[in-house]
Structure formats: C-alpha cells, structure tokens
Design a protein around this nucleic acid. Structure first.
Lengths: 303, 303
DNA sequence: AGATAATCATGAATGCAATTCATATCAGAG
DNA sequence: CTCTGATATGAATTGCATTCATGATTATCT
C-alpha cells in the first residue's frame, strides 16, 4: 500500500538524483531506499527509474508518482501548519539581524514565502549592521541572527543553513588572473574591497590573511554591485560568495578564483535564543530558507 | 510521522462514525484504530475527536485532517489509476446486464463517474431484461451482470455490492396499513404489482409467497413510478427496495411495511466472467458503485 | 435503580514488514 | 585493470503497528 513515506523518498530522489544522498535526507540507508523502491515497482508492476551508474532518472511512471508526491506533500505540510495554528501559541514576531551583507540576496524571497505561510507572525529585518549581532538578541532587539560559526551553543539554539565558498574577485585584466588559485601572499600589495564591517567579521582576513601576517589596504562599499564596480575598474580585490558573483563571472564582467589550496569556505546558521526554539514558525523559517537557497543559489551545499 | 494509513482511517471514521465499523473497513481491529488515533493526537498535541458512547465526532482539528484526507486520497487514487493505464492492458468494454429494474436508479451516476475515470473503456447497458442474464455473458453479449445471489462461483467472479430491504408498499388508505409488518397470508387476496419479469425473479414470490402456497393476482408495469401510481390508486400491493420508495413514503404518497418477521432482504452483486476479473477497471467499477450507492441510497448496507 | 449493551481506552504480547548490515554487482574514468 | 561511486541483494534485525484481552464509560432498557 502506498504511503507518504514513499512519496517523501521519491521527492528526495528527484531533488538529489542519487539514492545515497536521498537516503540521507529522509534519514534512511541507501539500502532501505533501494528496497523501498523495489517494493513500489513490484506493487505496480512498473519500472519507476532508469538506473545509471551516476544515479537514477525517472521513467514516465516515476514522473507520475513524483507529480503526486509534489502536490500531496505540499498539502500535507499546509494541513500540519494549520494544526499548529489551531493549537494556538502561534503568533509572535521574528526580527532578523544579518551578520553579512550578502544575505540580502536571498532573504527577500524567503521572507515573502514566510509571510504567506505565517501571516500572523511579524517578520522584520533589524536595520543596519552591528559589530556583535548576538548582543542584539540579548538586548531583546532581535529574535534571530543569521551568520557564521555558532559561538557557544549553550545559550542559543542553532539551525544550520548552508555552506558556500568565498572566492577572490579580480578585474579581467588583473595581474593575478593567470593564477588558478590565490594564496595569502598574493594579497600583500593589493587593496581589499569589503563591506564596511570590522576586520574580525571578514572571513578572508580572519582565516587567511591575519594568520599569515598580511594586512592589505582596505576600502569599503555598502553594496555588492558597488564592490564589483570597484573591482572591475581595478581599484582592488574583493572576496565574495560564489553564488553572489556567479552571474558577473558568467558575463565576463570579472573573474573569480578560489583562495588557498582548499578554498575558503564559510557556513551560515540561524541562531535563536533557546526560548524561541519551540516556536513552530522558527523551524519553518529555517526550512523555507534552505529550500529557497538550494533552489536559487548556485554552488551552495546544505548543512 | 503522518502517513496515508492515518488518512485512510480518518476517512473511514468519518464515513462510519464509529471506530469498530471503521476498523473493519480498513482491515484493522478497533483497538488498532484507537491506538492509531492516540498517536496522531499525541503527535500534534491536539484532540481530533470528541468521544461519545455512540461514536466519534470530529473536532475542528480533526476536520482539518479529514479535509486533507479527502483531497489527498482522491489524488492518490487518480495517480494509481494513471499508473495502471501506463502499464497498458487498460482498454476494453463493459457491457452491463441488469437483473432488476430498480438498479437504473443508481446506475446512471455510477456510469458517469466511471466514464470520467476510464474514458478508454466502453461502458454500456445491454438493452432489455432477460430471463437468464448470466446466459448473456456466456453468449458473449454482456460482460457483467448486476443481480442477486451468486449461482455457482465456479465460472464467475463475484463482487458483493450491498444489501437492502424489500418493503411492501400500500396505498395510504389500505386495509392493511394498521399492521406493523405483513405476513405471507396478508397477500392472499391482494393484487401484486410487479415489473414484467418471471415469477422466479421476484424475491417476494420466490422467498415468501410460493413457500406459503400463496399465489396472488399479478399486474405489471415497466417503471417504478408507474407501479407506485397503481399502488396509490389502490389497484394492489407492490414490493420494492426501501431506498426506492423512501422519498414517496416521506411525502406520504404511500406507506411501506416490512415483510415477515425479519423483513425480506436482498443482495446485489456484480458478476463477471473469470477472464475479466483482472481488468483493473472492473474492480474500480465495483468500488465506484459501492461509494455512490452508500452515499445516495438510504438504508442499504455494504456487503 | 440496576442491568445491559453499546461504545472507546489501555497495557502487554505479538508479529510483520521496513530497515540495517554486509556484501555483491555494475559502469565509467583514469 | 584497478579504483571510484553508484545501485542491488539477501539475511538478520529491530521498530513499531497491530492484536489480544480486558477495563472504563455512558446511554438505554426493564
């Protein structure tokens, strides 16, 4: 008998293309998923997937079930959200403080979807950037911080969002453009163009340059596009998320290079006070964020 | 985690109002259903039903889940039907022969729904009434007979539909109207108004009157409404299904009385040749019939 | 009232089916 | 030809839904 569990698995396979990754997402082993699919196929006497050594692709029958999964699972989620609402304790506010400027790029669609799902929750951005955004929570001026590494875990509830690579961005004619990847040394005589935040908040400086004892000139700009203009007109180098510059690189406006031998990676988390942890809309915000970002941000990896 | 099994149970409870009957329909024990519901309620921290000693009624939360069940399960059925279609072997014809005239009353909506679901199957009624409808199947002139008791079980596949009571129908001013129930003896000096079919096909005669050696006058009419007119104008007594006369009784056009001490009950089955048994649309036809009839025919009991 | 007949609830035992574990198999890349 | 990364498979295991046996509750009948 068909169960939602099957549909959830199907959706995971569709999203990730491979049994092993899909299995992880639904908290099963690859073997379990394989068995599950085999049972389904036997039940209907149909092949649902074409097996290839690089993953699974859906047959028409598989597609039909997948379509069912998509519509049904959305309805199930909607219903469960309504139940939470019926239970009360659902109103509230969610004032979000950002640790990094680039988050703006994806936050708007997330907030739109959130407002649709939780009309009775007041969601807002805390204006401006602060040296210690976590303090904003402590002071009661924010409810959630979206930012990097979790600090103590004791006082806060931390929901992992995703990982992304920070790339060095160069002008097309830059002297370093020939290099496959940049090292700390390469930054020595360059001007670094950043958002106007303290050095400790800039991963490149904190993780790479400071340890190497390198302290390049700095110049700041508020907007990503302004930073890119400065880079393109050869005023210096920037370090930006891969998904933030992809479009500009694709259009040959600038070039991007990994930093260090393994690349410079950064993680984003949603941090809320323990008291908010059980508010149902907090989990949902995280879920929406992950879904939206994985869909429209190229080159990120969910945590 | 919510599963379709839960939604199926919910739907059964909604339809039948009682755990024990609902349990039967989903092939579980009453206990299992009770546990299942308790798990659901615990999961959402909500009460889904108000318990009364005469059954369960839905709370708003329960209603919400029930609404989900209704939409989702329809979609699941549609999808599964599409899968069957994708597998092929789905075209065909379904020529139905009726054993009793009253079946017309519910057959049309059933056929409408069937055509919607199986557009590629040609469904038709075999015209006219025949003394031995099963012979029509043998002769290849029909694919399904809807009628009473299964004859041999060897040669045919039999799907039970429902049970209903046959009531004696009297004019409002009839001399027998004072009696709570009618016995065979009561028919002795009456005229029996029936459809124009052989005596052996009339349950009242076969089961009640013949055994008692009573042979009343007969008069026939083709249409139910014509029979009722004859009854109302005191030309005789008729014996008709409870659901067929309910409306007329409710409007005081005629009165209806049970026959014999236990009432006279009849069963309807769908009979198909073994060869057709595995055609997917045959099962679906039966399912549609049962669903439509239980919804719009008052006083029947599914078999 | 008291007994009766319905209903649902509950806890422990059970059993089955989904899952895991360990391993095989397969295809393509280097 | 091996190594890597994927799925498949069979047997063992386990988790959890289900059953069994009984209790609790409440309306109905006498």
């Amino acid at each position: 008998m068909l169960e939602l569990r099957h549909l959830r698995s199907l959706l995971a396979v569709a999203d990730l293309g491979k049994l092993s990754s899909a299995a992880e997402r639904v908290h099963l082993t690859q073997s379990a998923l394989s068995h599950q699919i085999r049972v389904l196929e036997a039940r209907y006497g149909l092949t649902l997937f074409q097996r290839t050594p690089r993953g699974l692709t859906f047959t028409p029958a598989g597609e039909r079930l997948l379509a069912l999964a998509r519509t049904v699972l959305v309805q199930v989620n909607d219903a469960e959200r309504d139940l939470v609402r019926l239970k009360g304790d659902t109103g509230g506010e969610l004032r979000i403080a950002l640790e990094c400027h680039t988050c703006f790029d994806w936050l708007m669609p997330v907030m739109d979807e959130f407002r649709r799902r939780w009309p009775e929750v007041e969601i807002d951005l805390v204006a401006g950037f602060h040296s210690d955004p976590l303090a904003l929570i402590a002071e009661g001026r924010a409810d959630m911080v979206i930012g990097s590494a979790p600090p103590s875990k004791r006082a806060w509830h931390i929901a992992p969002l995703f990982r992304f690579e920070i790339l060095a961005v160069l002008a097309n004619e830059h002297r370093l453009r020939g290099k496959r990847r940049l090292s700390a040394e390469d930054f020595r005589d360059e001007t670094l163009i950043t958002y106007p935040v303290p050095e400790t908040r800039i991963d490149l400086i904190r993780e790479v340059l400071s340890p190497a004892g390198i302290k390049p000139e700095r110049r700041t700009a508020e907007l990503t596009i302004a930073i890119l203009q400065l880079v393109a007109s050869r005023r210096g180098i920037a370090a930006l998320p891969n998904w933030g510059v992809k479009n500009y690189v694709d259009h040959d406006y600038v070039v991007a290079r990994p930093i260090g031998t393994k690349g410079l990676w950064s993680e984003l988390h949603a941090i809320v006070p323990k008291a908010l942890k059980d508010k149902p809309y907090v989990d949902d915000f995280v879920e929406i964020t992950r879904a939206v970002c994985v869909r429209q941000l190229d080159g990120i990896a969910l945590l």
